[in-house]
Simulated scan of single mutants.
Amino acid sequence: MANNKALGTGGRKSDKDLKIRVKTAKGRTVASTKWLQRQLNDPYVARARAEGYRSRAAFKIKEIDEKHKFFRKGMRVVDLGAAPGGWSQVAAAAVGSTVEKPLVVGIDYLDMDPIPGVILLKKDFTEEDAPAMLIEAMGGQGADVVMSDMAWPTTGHRATDHLRIVHLIEIAADFAIQVLRPGGSFVAKVFQGGTEHELLHMLKRHFNTTFHVKPPSSRKDSAEAYLVAKGFKGRTEGEDGQADE
């Protein structure tokens, strides 16, 4: 009989053997079973629980900021598509937002539990009155960072999904141009297919630097990436912030 040493394992199970395996169950689809197994074996999910973040997505904005440094103490931040709140948690800690002086405003049509130092609005950002509600929540003051993790539920049709996410980025970028202070930053989720040339061209006119980044916590098999625009140049008088100005 071959021993463990001869097999080169030394009696230690491989990482593959150590993975939690989830069996299919009545009422659970194969896709949901695979998703559950991936979640249970995801180190970022475990870290999020251990560090008190509401989702693994918190590490995405945290890693992007660690490298590109757009958060600073005292800044005002708007979080579009905030649920379940991981990005707002990271932003609140980074800028020193408190219950007494909230510097972060988040918006989403989904319910969210309160976050200390964050003003949360239950509202669909695509609705016409949403920008005004955000500006009112900020006390009429400008923002230093506008970040968006918004995404529509996918249809499975790549071209349609791409157009839908580009639409979200466009309205988020338009809002950012309306409310950002000079020097501010804009961060938004994009998907495979990149950012439309017209939108990217518009952002390059309004920001000193624009680039795409895929943080380590973004799954390798995911088509998502993040668009970062830094150094907002400010708006000129009469500018409406539209991409076709």
Rank of each mutant, 00 (worst) to 15 (best):
V90E: 00
V77R: 01
W87M: 07
V104L: 05
P114F: 07
D108I: 00
V105A: 06
K123L: 12
D108K: 05
A92E: 12
V105N: 09
I119Q: 14
D111H: 14
G117I: 05
D108C: 04
L110Q: 15
E100H: 08
M112K: 12
I107F: 06
S88I: 00
V77P: 03
D111L: 04
V104R: 02
L120Q: 14
D124N: 14
D111W: 05
G106C: 05
G106F: 00
I107S: 11
A94F: 04
Y109T: 10
P102M: 13
D79P: 03
P102I: 12
P116T: 06
D124Y: 08
I107C: 13
V78Q: 01
L120G: 08
E100W: 01
V105G: 09
L121W: 04
A82D: 07
A82V: 00
P114N: 07
D108N: 10
L110C: 12
K123G: 00
L120C: 05
V104M: 08
A83F: 05
S88H: 02
L120V: 10
Q89F: 03
D111Y: 14
V118E: 04
R76T: 06
V105L: 08
I115C: 04
A82E: 02
V105H: 08
K101S: 11
D79G: 09
L80I: 15
W87K: 10
K101Y: 05
M112P: 01
S97Y: 07
D79F: 06
G106D: 07
P116K: 13
A82P: 03
G81Y: 01
I115H: 03
Y109I: 14
A82L: 06
I119T: 15
V104E: 03
V99K: 15
G81H: 03
Q89Y: 04
A93D: 14
L121C: 08
V90Y: 00
I107V: 15
V90S: 00
V105S: 09
V77S: 01
P84A: 10
K122G: 07
G96M: 07
P84D: 10
A91M: 13
S88F: 02
